[in-house]
Amino acid sequence: MKLNNIDIRDIFFENIKKIFLKNNNFFILTNDADVFALQKLKNHPRFIDAGVCEQNLVNIASGLARKGKKVLIYGFCNFLCHRSFEQIKINICSMKLPVFIVGIGPGFSFSYDGPTHHGVQDIANMYTLPELQIVNLSENKLAHYFSRNILKITEPTYFRLDKGILYSKHKFNIYSNGFNYLKSKNKKKIIITSGYFSRLSEQLVYDKRLNDVSIIDLFNFKKLNMIKLYKIIKNYKKLIIYDENTKSGGFSFIINDLIVKRNLKFSKIKSICSPEKQIFIYRQDRETLLKDLKIDKSYLFKSLLKI
């Protein structure tokens, strides 16, 4: 599979489809969400469209998993994470069942559909569940790796799956640390980011040839190697936290906690996150909405110059 020109959803779900067809123990469930790669499975007895009822979806998935089935559920991240939060907490997490929850439409990927479809609080919400792993599939190689190896995962896991071609031309460290580090020649400024914003940061840094800006892409939030993260970021003077989620709904608290615990000193810290409000702005494309909210690539660029 060529990874550089395929939509990340197709990479992920094509791999899942192959595993599903080979493994009679594997179930896929959805809440009426349509995914191109899985359309042919719709009449398969192990493919269950529970309809628009997320609580029931999660409950069914957990019952199947309790009996040893491998279960993947997918749907809009907001409806899975928030609507069925208690079901995930009690029936998946407290039971320690390895159900894979795939949240599509994270961030402002559905920029025209209003706050019901803005997935900007899910990371912090899911982080509150101690047993749940959280993987933000920010890059095509990452999505390929996790989807191909999904059966090796034994813990309940929430995957955030964006859309579009999220391919990094650079080496991507999938195997350890829970983050990827793109090191600049001159270690002055560092952006800590995740998901779609990681690719935006990368495009900016390489398009503008910003030799003094490094990037950390956090992708496995519960398995971050905090010692390594600390050892890297302590070398920088200026830090930007760049998150498409809100400050309270994203990963900011993880970094803030690290800064306080390790007494890290920066000459400048800036936080660029989605505003702490429900956004009733409707835009045909994500970039325009990000611009409206002053969290787009050009705003990041200006901030990097000013900081």
Partner: peptide, 28 residues
């Protein structure tokens, strides 16, 4: 389900979940 280990089918306490969970169990 932890004490005694796997003695009961499900963790009780929260209401309204069991019928959906039974669907998952029943399908197997």
């Amino acid at each position: 389900i932890f004490n005694p280990k796997n003695f009961f089918e499900w963790n009780s306490g929260s209401l309204g979940h069991s019928v959906g969970v039974c669907i998952g169990l029943a399908l197997t």
